[in-house]
């Protein structure tokens, strides 16, 4: 293209051509960070999820349903597990669940789990070597849902931890 004087005009350079690239890159990074921060790992195994929920609409005030297992399987050499536990929906109390080894080592304590809800994935206090850990225990502490968190009758169910 020529100007009035018949000279060729230099091709107009785009201002900050890389700026848009970096802006888009930063935006994508921010979106990624937000998505990762909001991502809650879905448990692969939900213990207690197969419980008959026939009493869903008829919550039971006279008894507390405590899930029990002969054994549960955990992954070796990692604290983060893909297993979670459920408070049966027909209960009328909060659960606080602890996983305890035979020697008394507390491997995990859940937050308060409402009826029908699932705990966070188990995150152990220490990594376990592969093997079987007999006489381990799931301790269920039960609390009222009236805001006072008054302790109710609870249960302890013995089980074997299979770590592999």
């Amino acid at each position: 293209m020529k100007n009035k004087n018949g000279r060729y005009l230099a091709k107009k350079k785009k201002k900050f051509p890389m700026l848009w690239f970096f802006l888009i890159l930063i935006a994508l990074l921010l979106i990624g960070i937000v998505l990762i921060a909001n991502h809650k790992e879905e448990p692969q195994t939900i213990l207690g999820n197969d419980v008959t929920e026939s009493k869903d609409n008829n919550q039971n005030t006279n008894s507390i349903a405590i899930p029990g297992y002969e054994a549960i399987t955990l992954a070796a050499n990692t604290k983060k597990q893909s297993t979670a536990l459920k408070n049966p929906s027909h209960n009328m109390c909060l659960f606080r669940i602890s996983l305890i080894l035979e020697d008394g080592t507390v491997l995990w304590v859940s937050d308060y789990v409402k009826p029908g809800e699932i705990s966070d994935n188990i995150e152990l206090s220490k990594e376990l070597e592969p093997g079987t850990y007999p006489n381990s225990m799931l301790k269920y502490e039960c609390f009222t849902m009236d805001g006072n968190l008054s302790p109710l009758n609870g249960a302890e169910t013995k089980l074997t931890l299979i770590v592999k």
Partner: peptide, 12 residues
Amino acid sequence: PEASYILNVPAN
């Protein structure tokens, strides 16, 4: 199969 159960205990 490994055994599993629900234990129903008296509430408050």
